[in-house]
Design a binder for these strands. Structure first.
Lengths: 138, 138
DNA sequence: TCTTGAAGCTCTAGTGACTAGAGCAATTAC
DNA sequence: GTAATTGCTCTAGTCACTAGAGCTTCAAGA
């Protein structure tokens, strides 16, 4: 049996976050010691590692909940799990595209500034005047 | 003079968000009509456009507050504004790098799945077993 | 001038995914 | 046995908004 601190060290999930996941119903409430402390089995360790892994990949807690439900029904078709992963991939790609546009704009803003004072600082002027932008970035 | 709705249409900032910015002190409390409705000047329109622009570029509200303070002191050296923009650029680049790692991992996970049921779904297995990952992605 | 419907007002509470802190109790290592 | 560490619950805070209730004001047409 693992204490909550053991679990935290083994999965990299912080102790308060584990308790938070329990509150949210992502992990089940575990057994307790005589002194009311949480005691986890290996199975619970594995589930938390699963959650950690999915969070690292940017899945929302609701997606993870769905994936956990699915993994509890191994006989079902896996189209749903596939769909969740595909959607996550699309959303990650969209975020990358958006951030790249910002990167371009920021490079232009931050590198052109050769003003000595705020009065002729390109950063401030670029933010004040959208017309200075090379293209739309919304 | 502009009503809050006019301001919203012209800047693309939603009405409740404008009121929120006022509460946060990002924009000053404007004049009021006899019936207690907000009435904005062109200057206030421009400040809100500045804020919108900076938010679009991913600047945090605290950064924007600093940039606004700076733009009110045009005689000061602009190193600080430059620094804020540079840091924002670095942070955007870090986010892009992280998301690209996730993209690679998700591509692998979501494309390899040829299982018919959850029991042999690669998505679920990949999330359950970190050892299936090509490399670390934390 | 009256009416109606859109737009405005304040206030509270909710979102997601945690994080921080207070004030205790239990466990563990020496 | 005792001291340090770890654990417990509970409340409240983070960021940047967003939603809703219940009310008032404004602008345009009849």
């Amino acid at each position: 049996m693992f204490s909550i601190g053991d679990l935290s060290r083994r999965t990299g999930v912080k102790v308060p976050t584990i308790r938070y996941y329990e509150q949210m119903g992502l992990v089940a409430a575990p057994e307790r010691s005589e002194g009311n402390q949480r005691r986890y089995s290996r199975q619970e360790l594995e589930r938390l590692a699963f959650i950690r892994h999915a969070r690292d990949l940017g899945f929302a807690v609701e997606d993870i909940r769905a994936l956990i439900d699915l993994s509890g029904h191994p006989e079902q078709p896996c189209g749903h799990a596939d769909k969740i992963a595909q959607e996550q991939l699309i959303s990650v790609r969209e975020k990358i595209a958006q951030l790249k546009r910002l990167e371009t704009e920021l490079e232009r803003i931050a590198s052109c500034c050769d003003g000595k004072t705020v009065g002729d600082c390109y950063v401030i002027r670029a933010l004040s005047d959208h017309a200075l932008c090379a293209d739309e970035h919304v």
